[in-house]
């Protein structure tokens, strides 16, 4: 079985590369969307007097996470076909992954902004920064590493969930797995599984590096001590 998988790898590297790229593409689109939407929502709900909205938003984002992916795909297919949009393939999967990615990003953005030392905000305000300047020059730079950590969580989690997307024809590394299940080809299942795991590990490492790079230098030094 291992030997078969190995042979397949040697004979069809182009196919494996294709699935991997497809997979990455889905992840990229979904998580860029999730990051933009999630960070904006996170910033919005961290505003003064929005604690209730924040609670509600995070509550619904958490519920979203508990919906099994196949069920969510099913629901989205229904909605999309009602809107006469493509109900299988790329679109429903990207939407589902975007929704799954929201929670860690919203949650981290909200917490990071909320946790900025009030003394710093007061100093900024006392020196005449507008609320917008306090956000862009004080809160966000300090929040970036934590937001990045949320994004990292979202991406890694979505790499796994995206594999299931192949079931509704979105392509990616789920394809060899489902084909293997259908045709009793353990080698294909193995290849798919290993590639998904490797991809997660590599992307996680890259995102970790990114998290470090986006941490402001002055804050990095403090963490080192």
């Amino acid at each position: 079985m291992w030997i078969q998988a190995w042979n397949y790898l040697l004979n069809h590297p182009d196919k494996i590369l294709g699935w991997t790229l497809q997979h990455l593409y889905i992840i990229l689109v979904a998580n860029v969307a999730a990051a933009i939407i999630g960070i904006l929502i996170g910033i919005y709900i961290s505003g003064k007097g929005r604690e209730h909205i924040a609670e509600t938003v995070i509550y619904f984002a958490s519920i979203m996470m508990t919906i099994p992916s196949l069920a969510l795909y099913g629901i989205l297919m229904g909605i999309l076909s009602l809107l006469s949009l493509p109900s299988i393939g790329f679109l429903p999967v990207v939407i589902a992954l975007t929704l799954y990615g929201l929670l860690p990003i919203i949650r981290n953005t909200y917490a990071a902004i909320r946790e900025v030392d009030p003394a710093m905000i007061e100093a900024g305000r006392g020196m005449g920064m507008s609320e917008k300047q306090i956000l862009t020059k004080v809160k966000l730079p300090l929040a970036v590493p934590i937001i990045m950590a949320g994004l990292r969580q979202a991406v890694v989690m979505n790499i796994g969930i995206a594999a299931i997307g192949s079931y509704i024809g979105a392509g990616g590394l789920g394809q060899p797995i489902f084909r293997g299940i259908a045709n009793y080809r353990t080698d294909l299942i193995l290849i798919g599984a290993i590639c998904v795991s490797l991809l997660s590990i590599i992307v996680d490492m890259i995102m970790g590096r990114l998290e470090w790079l986006t941490t402001p230098k002055g804050v990095r030094i403090r963490r080192n001590q």
């Binding site: 100093a123 005449g128 230098k217």
Partner: peptide
């Protein structure tokens, strides 16, 4: 204007509140 007012008044607080991400 409140921000103009504050920019014309030096302000130092007990907890210092230096911005850690800035030099």
């Amino acid at each position: 204007n409140v921000n103009e007012l504050r920019r014309g008044i030096g302000y130092a607080i007990q907890n210092i509140g230096l911005f850690p991400h800035l030099t």
